[in-house]
Design a binder for these strands. Structure first.
Lengths: 204, 204
DNA sequence: TTGACATTAAAACAGTTGTTTGATACAAAT
DNA sequence: ATTTGTATCAAACAACTGTTTTAATGTCAA
């Protein structure tokens, strides 16, 4: 990512990063303008104040996040393979250090303390994705399985995945830094997939 | 819960609440001492500074929240029953409406932005508890199962439980308020236990 | 060149922050 | 009664915060 030369976007980039890292109160405008390499008066000039900068930074981060590779299967793909793809895709997105990780933190902050900035973000982003998982789970379960069982199963899957992201600091302490480093997304994806498939296969 | 009259605990209670609500930076010591009804110098007197107050407040909220019924089984308890007890116990604690709601937010803040409190909490509180779960999982898996598989399995279990706490707002949106209200801890515990036991039984 | 406008710069502002001070009240022990 | 130590208080402190001001700079058309 090349750093843009116009101060407005430089501010947005720096702000998104630092706001995600330290929260709204924890981040100072001086630190932001310092990383952006602009004068402090620029935040008042391009945005009204710190809060307006925050809102714009969140929107900028959410929209500018590049296109995602869509999950699309051929009609005869076995549901077990679809499940594997979903889990792997999710874990890669949650744990890949190459990806800008601070967007996830921004969203987790909004989970705890929602602001109007990204209130609708979770809804527009998560809901369509969960619909896909619900469908695959329904394929894997016996026909006529009640709705409740479907999403309980789906939550068991997603819960396993997100745990490695949301509770990362604690996992790191529990199993030690060395062991943690060996937990690559592919290994985890395979474990969760097998774990889930066994639980579902024994279902009937 | 009656408010204690000694300033130290009054500070801890007020601090936990406000830190959870606004985060470490967002909360001011003046607001805390105001709610606690003590003088501002008390935070320096009983704790060294704001940060030490924060650490103690987190630990106080996580651990000191009433005595826990200890998990103790007779030597001939089958491991499957132990697992069921652990899951049920955990979910009851995570979703108990009597438990102040701000406790979860406080811990989630630590997960997003770990401070020294997170490390102390993990070592003093979480580690001993996880040891118990690791032991039960080891009983459930075939003898000689490698360590990594043990805690991957344990994380699959804990991940399923904590998901209902950490992602509560999203679950509420996804399945609707009515359906959410019907998700009592007992139902969830039974689902997760069955799900896990099936995954492990098919193991061999 | 001149003037108007957009942009950047440094400094100052006013308010809030965490923290410390020094005095005071109270109790128990000498 | 005097001393000793604990606990509490109002007040002040120094540092940092977001924001504003004011001046300087650059750009481009007339």
């Amino acid at each position: 990512m090349t750093t843009p030369e116009n101060p407005r976007e430089r501010l947005l980039d720096a702000a998104g990063e630092i706001f995600a890292e330290k929260g709204f109160k924890g981040a100072t405008v001086r630190e932001i303008i310092d990383r952006a390499g602009v004068n402090i008066a620029a935040v008042n000039y391009y945005f009204r104040d710190k809060e307006r900068l925050y809102i714009e930074a969140v929107k900028h981060a959410a929209c500018g996040q590049g296109e995602e590779p869509h999950l699309s299967w051929s009609p005869d793909t076995p549901p077990a393979q679809k499940l594997r793809d979903i889990i792997r895709f999710q874990l890669l997105k949650l744990l890949d250090p190459n990806r800008p990780a601070w967007l996830a933190r921004l969203i987790m902050r909004e989970l705890i303390q929602p602001s109007e900035a990204c209130a609708e973000l979770a809804r527009e982003y998560i809901e369509p994705r969960s619909k896909i998982l619900f469908g695959v789970v329904r394929e894997l379960l016996p026909p006529g399985t009640p709705n409740r069982k479907v999403f309980l199963t789906a939550f068991s899957i997603v819960g396993q995945c997100h745990f490695y992201c949301s509770h990362k600091p604690i996992i790191r302490i529990l199993i030690g830094e060395d062991e943690y480093q060996r937990l690559d997304p592919t290994t985890l994806a395979e474990h969760i997939t097998q774990f889930t498939l066994r639980a579902l296969k024994a279902e009937e």
